[in-house]
Amino acid sequence: MLEIHDLRKAYGDFIAVQNLTLRASGGEVFGLLGPNGAGKTTTIHCIGGLLTPTSGHIRVNGHDVVSEGRKARASLGVAPQEIALYEELSAKENLEYWGAAQGLSSAELRQRIPEVLEHVGLLDRAKDPVKNFSGGMKRRMNFACGIVHHPKVLLLDEPTAGVDPQSRVRLLDLVRAQARAGACVLYTTHYMEEAESLCDRLAIVDHGKLIAQGTLTELRAMLGERDLVRLTGVFPSPPAPDGIEVLQHSEDSLTLSVAQAAMRLPEIFAAIARAGGEVRGATVTQPSLESLFIKLTGKELRE
């Protein structure tokens, strides 16, 4: 339902997205995971027809977003990264406006608006101006305006940015409900846990490049059964005992990929001491998307 083939978007000399290919179908949540500046929003804007790709093709529900822009956009629902709402207008008025932008008739809107408000839990606040809403409520409203017209393809750009944990759980449930109802959801985030709990399939991007893609299980397998060991202290040179992979090394931090790390910590500490280093802190993490990201890029996802 959503096909991206070899997408590339450059702003002058700067390449924001390159060689991105992915395919997502109805009923699934496809995650686009990457740190700030990875090119997630740029990708969403290319799908939405807001930006013209430098090269490559995007099809939404079978329609090319450049040559059949209007048809492609008709199947699309978007919840932008920012709260793109009219704050002085009430929840109902916002839905009326964004519904009209999707070409819905007044009759359709009359029937649909209470449904959507009920769905996102804002029915009792229908007449309140959005500016009086809490951050979490605004996020739900931002989401509601993206689904008012039952889109086949839903683009959610960091829909949980800046909300409290409770609202986040609620929003994630709303996203799952969309996929269950048959929508194809493209979900961008820089939160690993969200991607892990929500997404059927994932693409991990960094600096505009696709670095891994697959189901959660496939991605985990790329790590092997290895734990992530993160050390702080003084490290003049990286130690390399057998079977230990150095993912990242600097004067004061060291990240290692180790099978059965807990059993091998004494051996690692000893090796560091021999090399003239000193360990001040250590954390061991089970295999996760986070460790995969660090393994693939040598840096933390959230910096």
Partner: peptide, 13 residues
């Protein structure tokens, strides 16, 4: 700046 224009540009109308 507040993103409503971007949202409109991504709508079919």
């Amino acid at each position: 700046m507040n993103g409503t224009l971007r949202r409109i540009a991504m709508a079919p109308e």
